[in-house]
Design a protein around this nucleic acid. Structure first.
Lengths: 327, 327
DNA sequence: TTGAAAGCGCTAACAG
DNA sequence: CTGTTAGCGCTTTCAA
């Protein structure tokens, strides 16, 4: 196949040990020998075999990232930033799209064990997966509460929920609907609807919920949203689960003859780059995606290094609002 | 560290070969022995070490994907579909965000050699990178013309360019601007502006170009776009390089008091899922992203299998237009 | 300052 | 049907 350290050694007239030494810059070597070996490697166009090294060291320098799908802009951007961080620290990214399917997730986890990845970042999780146990001390989770002592990095969802709700109230809304995800899945995002409810109660306003699970097809989501606007619309504000749902609400409202933002004000969640490019007018809560990525990578590498880390890292969100007070 | 085939062999009272045989389902084994080994593996919770296997077989079952950035929805979706296809065929995806930087790309290519990935899919390419030579017969390219006999999978950009231009003309536009990417980089996307020019000439209309390189920052792109609308606007139609630029044009036009679509009609390119979710009203040329992914994976795996493949695969695009003829 | 030899976990001849 | 043995490419003692 391709050249080995042995070929280099023979050509250079030294032992494989010596070649290994210059390769790793370890131990004593005479300048002359080093130079000869270097030249030989160049001449032969030798590339060290990382597989062999990994095998020996029991380290692959691969980190796996499990997300529902990189198709979703939040995860697409997260993936980008995580890859960038990892590459900078000498690690490579192995992508797993779970599609929020438990079986997929199990299959990947088994695979990750077999492939001996050095660590795992989980951005998608379906409870009760025992396979996670095998990765103790090699896992960090983003926006998901896994079992036991697995560190979690998350946005300040509670603050985000408060900000969004308060913004709508400040801008004159009184009958506000909160669209949230599947309540069976325990995620920090649930804190948003808790915050929403609290703010509503503090303002002596009634609260309303609608559930739109993340893993539904677009069409199904759209149908739920359309139902809100068929018949008499009883809301003048919506705190949406994410920007895509927010946009669906706006589109559906307009289609049903509801004026936005005059009669209905909508606020989204995530604030990904692409959404801000395509719909700069959309008000939303911006998640610190790059920081989520940086922190999760940093924490994971610390764990791998047997360092002590914080169990919970909560990062601040930001309100981006262009809602005017005009009714 | 973790358990090896030897541990299983000892516990089960057989040789490592026997364990290897049941593991790989190869050769003759008595049902009884097989069962005993299986049970032992379960009991010990043994996971085969893929690193060792890879090392031995010289196959990693890793395929690398080089893209500018998964942050961009086109590449985010492409990444998703490629990963899905690969997973289905027993391969895993190693993501490389080149950021369109030549140095990054070189670094990755060197790394990919070291890591001994089985193949590479290139969705980003900066010419004259000699490192690509090392991957002969292991590469397929998407929308990029690489050197020599590297197979390419692409959208029918020429047809897309014609469709877009003709649509604007059909809907009454006469002074149409074409926004294209960097002309120094040779990509099939250039066929779009060629098609645009041909259609304009066929209709005896003047053609106009503006260049907005893909790798510019958003802010820089926005400035170029804003310039188009500062002062007197001389266009009533725009064929944009992609949907994001299209949206920038629309936003800028509206800001500058130009009515869309009454005074200006814009058509984008890509038609990614997220764009259609966020801006369903945007007219665009839909690229067959999933098919691009499927075909590139299929072709790559064929090459790895030493099968003959087509040098060029061109996939049809689709016009998605909601432009009305009303002036 | 350099080399010989053992061994990482697994598979694949080759014997038995 | 099962076991012995060699070896994949590299690093790492241990000697020289």
């Amino acid at each position: 196949m391709s050249l080995t350290i042995k070929d280099v050694a023979e050509k250079a007239g030294v032992s494989v040990t010596t070649v290994s030494r210059v390769l790793n810059d370890r131990g004593y070597i005479s300048a002359k020998t080093r130079k000869k070996v270097m030249t030989t490697m160049k001449e032969l166009n030798y590339t060290p075999n990382e597989m062999a090294r990994s095998f020996l060291s029991n380290k692959t320098r691969f980190i796996a990232l499990i997300v529902p799908t990189t198709e979703n802009p939040f995860f697409g951007e997260l993936t980008f930033h995580i890859e960038k961080e990892l590459a900078q620290k000498g690690y490579n990214l192995f992508i797993c799209n779970s599609l929020n399917d438990v079986e997929n997730e199990k299959k990947y986890l088994r695979l990750l064990q077999e492939k001996r990845v050095d660590g795992v970042i989980v951005g998608s999780h379906n409870i009760n997966i025992s396979e996670y146990e095998h990765f103790e001390n090699k896992i960090v989770s983003i926006e998901r509460e896994l079992t036991k002592g697995i560190p979690i990095v998350q946005s300040d969802n509670y603050a985000g929920g408060r900000l969004a709700t308060q913004e709508l109230i400040d801008k004159g809304c009184r009958s506000i609907l909160c669209i949230r995800g599947d309540q069976h899945i325990k995620t920090p995002a649930n804190d948003r609807s808790i915050a929403y409810q609290e703010v509503m109660e503090e303002n002596n306003l009634n609260y309303f919920f609608e559930e739109v699970p993340f893993q539904l097809q677009d069409q199904e989501k759209r149908e739920i949203v359309n139902q809100i606007f068929s018949g008499e619309v009883m809301y003048d504000g919506i705190v949406a689960g994410d920007d895509i749902i927010a946009k669906m609400c706006i589109n559906s409202a307009v289609t049903h003859g509801v004026a936005v933002p005059e009669e209905l004000k909508v606020i989204g969640f995530d604030g990904t780059k692409i959404v801000r490019q395509l719909s700069p007018e959309l008000s939303t809560i911006i998640q610190p995606i790059e920081k989520l990525a940086q922190n999760s990578v940093e924490i994971l590498l610390s764990i791998l290094n047997d360092e002590k880390v914080n169990q919970v890292t909560k990062l601040p969100v930001k309100l981006l609002s262009s809602i005017s007070t005009k009714k």
